[in-house]
Design a protein around this nucleic acid. Structure first.
Lengths: 157, 157
DNA sequence: CATAGGCGGTTCAATTTCGAACCATCTTAC
DNA sequence: GTAAGATGGTTCGAAATTGAACCGCCTATG
């Protein structure tokens, strides 16, 4: 690494610091969420996210592919986790009548209760660490930033 | 969920959107990085991060625990990955003389070359998606935000 | 209709990760 | 000096994730 190629080959010290800390913070955040859920509620963050997405969805149900898209994981991982959640009775997978290939996953009453039990634990963490750090102005800036990042990711693929 | 407890039990729609998109964007970013490294350079993101941290460190070496702290994973995962990297010849683990329990991990010349080969691929992605989206002003704001989040995470633990 | 290709999901093997238990060494306090 | 506890790493088994191969259904095109 020679002196002048900060711009081309490597990141500037400042940019590098931001990027590194971004990675660190996101990992630590995930770690904390996972540990809290695992310790106090017996579900993983992935499982929790599935419950959340279902609760937010129209009719509290989603198809497998849609679920995979929303939580950003491989379809096979969704198959695996939905089976586990179904075994726990938190979720009810059933065939779609319109399309015999597809399966709907519906949040059960038990699932909703379990989610409501777990949510405060996570939301208080999210608030304390993530949200309380930003005022309304910053929040909208962050939202804009996230939208840009998301758009850039779309373009790249 | 009754009408008035947006503040207590659930997040406000805006806050929820920001948080959800934060999760989505970080996952997609990780996914892209991983796929690029895997496809074009035959290493995982974790392995890449290990190489980066070693390259940044004094004397291009770190101890196992320090490595685990910096990349934010379990120590056993570091043991596993360092062994793999050592098998590839990218890294050289050796006993510490001062403390017989400890092991230093040093970046080898081959490791440095491999890192330099892989870095542009990742850095251009990071720039295109993440860094080019923010100007200097926003960058320092983001840095500040990340520092706050990081501090909040410290407090919680 | 037929059939070719696309789509929704699952299965499977391989890889990675985690946490708990463990070993060895170092350090502190007596 | 030596016992007690802390610290640095590894091992082990369980769980999660991935991508590729696959199966069956759906749908367009002729």
């Amino acid at each position: 690494m020679s002196a002048g190629d900060f711009e081309s080959r490597w990141l500037s010290p400042g940019a590098n610091a931001v990027w590194t800390q971004f990675l660190t913070v996101t990992h630590r955040l995930e770690q904390q969420i996972d540990r809290r859920l695992q310790d106090h509620h017996g579900i993983s963050h992935t499982q929790y996210e599935i419950l959340v997405r279902l609760a937010d969805a129209e009719g509290h149900r989603l198809r497998m592919s849609e679920l995979a898209d929303r939580i950003v994981t491989a379809k096979s991982a969704v198959t695996y986790q939905v089976r586990k959640l179904a075994d726990m009775g938190l979720v009810d997978p059933h065939k779609c009548e319109r399309d015999n290939r597809a399966t709907w996953v519906t949040l059960t009453e038990t699932g909703r209760e379990r989610l409501e039990a777990a949510a405060p634990c996570i939301l208080s963490l999210v608030r304390k660490v993530f949200l309380d750090a930003i005022d309304c102005e910053q929040a909208s800036q962050l939202a804009e930033l996230l939208a840009t990042w998301s758009g850039n990711l779309d373009d790249i693929t």
